[in-house]
Design a binder for these strands. Structure first.
Length: 294
DNA sequence: AAGGTCAGGCAGGCGGCGTT
DNA sequence: AACGCCGCCTGCCTGACCTT
């Protein structure tokens, strides 16, 4: 049983496990239209950085900033100027970036030179739904378009055979994983994606996906090949079996899934976002996977 | 032979939806 | 609004197959 405050990898008991760094904004960053990510952070957390990052301010407003890489250095570039202009960033402002999970999501907090945090602009059309700024603006009702679908797999039902209620630790774990899941469901993309909360059986053996989702976007029946990408530089091939039993659709991921889960330290309660980024053929697809830690 | 993995299947709960 | 049907999803089991 996982402990509430300490993950079994022996990390700090502090809940703020997310990789975090800060940057002081200099005139040069504003003038050049780019902000360098600290090399130490890049070196240690390369997997947190895809080709673009999503910066979310405390109000939930989300910005997509494209990264540029050169000579081992990484900059926030395309979209940075708009970001800086929107928050009226000046020389000496302090930005704190906390990694929130897969897909390069960062919570960003902005402090002025007087040490106080800025008053973040509130959009009247926000309505509590994260907005995506900086190039792509999604409608707030999540209607992404005709060719886009979102499937959410959540809330394991109470066990029917093992019996008994949840223990306290399980309740705590559930609360933590619910936080992870809430973060995951705020993910937005123009690609089809689904959100899955990790169940014990998923980690132990096979991952189950929505049969209808897989049938619609990958293959209707049989075995198909999938690639799961954590970053643009690393991927894991897995197989997915799709079928229908008693008119019920099912899709199970195996043959590589356990290695993926193990190597990426996917735990029970984590929420994973599977974004379909490339439909290779009738029986293959590439998914970008974001892991939101419980 | 033993252990692990994969594939097929079962039982049961939840929720959407149509009907009354 | 209440009820029942049905689709979907889950945990779990079992047997076949593969690897060591």
């Amino acid at each position: 049983m996982a402990s509430l405050s300490r993950r079994d990898d022996g990390d700090s008991p502090l809940p703020a496990k997310a990789p975090t760094f800060f940057k002081i904004v200099l005139d040069k960053a504003l003038r050049d239209g780019r902000l360098e990510i600290p090399p130490a952070f890049v070196m240690k957390n390369e997997d947190c950085l895809a080709d673009s990052v999503f910066l979310k301010d405390p109000t939930g407003r989300v910005w997509r900033i494209e990264l540029t890489r050169r000579c081992g250095k990484v900059w926030l570039q395309k979209g940075w100027s708009e970001f800086a202009k929107f928050y009226s960033l000046n020389h000496g402002y302090l930005l704190v970036f906390s990694h929130e999970g897969g897909f390069s999501h960062f919570l960003v907090r902005i402090f002025q030179r007087n040490t106080l945090e800025i008053d973040y602009p509130i959009s009247s059309s926000h309505d509590g739904v994260p907005m995506l700024c900086g190039g792509i603006q999604l409608p707030k009702n999540e209607e992404h378009g005709d060719n886009v679908s979102v499937k959410i797999l959540d809330s394991p039902r109470p066990k029917t055979r093992s019996g008994g209620g949840m223990h306290t630790d399980e309740e705590k774990t559930t609360r933590l994983s619910d936080r992870a899941f809430s973060r995951a469901v705020s993910f937005k993309s123009s690609n089809p994606f689904l959100v899955v909360k990790m169940q014990p059986s998923y980690i132990a053996s096979q991952l189950r996906l929505s049969g209808s989702f897989v049938r619609r976007h990958i293959c209707a029946r049989g075995v198909c090949d999938m690639n799961l990408e954590i970053s643009s530089r690393r991927s894991w091939p897995v197989k997915c079996r799709v079928g229908v039993y008693r008119r019920k659709q099912y899709a199970r991921v195996y043959d590589g899934w356990k290695a993926f889960a193990r190597e990426n330290r996917v735990k029970v309660g984590d929420a994973c976002v599977f974004e379909l980024i490339n439909k290779g053929g009738t029986r293959s697809a590439t998914f970008k996977v974001g892991v939101y830690r419980a």
